[in-house]
Amino acid sequence: MKGKPHPHLYGVMAQFDNPSALVAAARETYEAGYRQINGYSPFPIEELSEAIGFRRTALPLIVLIGGIIGGLGGFFMQYWMEVIDYPINVGGKPFNSWPAFIPITFECTVLVAAFSAVLGMLALNKLPQPYHPVFNAPNFALATRDSFFLVIESKDPKFDHDEAVRFLRRLEPREVIDVEL
């Protein structure tokens, strides 16, 4: 069954009172075959991202690459400056006194890796994002206090408005509402 197109609908949203109910509902929704779903909660819930089928993120790889770039960049910056561009004899030490270059190499590794972690996280999350349809939901301000939300997005191939509402109602949420685009 292919759903009708919904040009003005972002999805349908169910509101829950506690994390257990949200995780259980998310699991059932995923098992029912919905894939374009998302949960919203006031704090991180490990089980929730698993329940909506989101397990892997490229972030650790990005941080690793950032760290490697920072480390190599930090070392070869010093190497180039002290050995190639302007070698100066300091206390008879070799131009490439690599042990003395390690502290700065380490600091550069951490610095670039930390920036990769923060900017990578923001980029993957597509933040900053001033507007998002879920903010149209009247109760959504409670998602940063004590309410838990589950959304089936209209772009889900299985999405059919009435069917999705009926399905979510069965999960005993506090209420189910439409989220406009």
Binding site: A26, N38, Y40, P44, S49, L127, P128, F140, A143
Partner: peptide, 12 residues
């Protein structure tokens, strides 16, 4: 920055 507590966001 538009933080909305999405499960995917929390994970990352």
């Amino acid at each position: 920055m538009g933080w909305r507590g999405s499960a995917r966001h929390w994970h990352r």
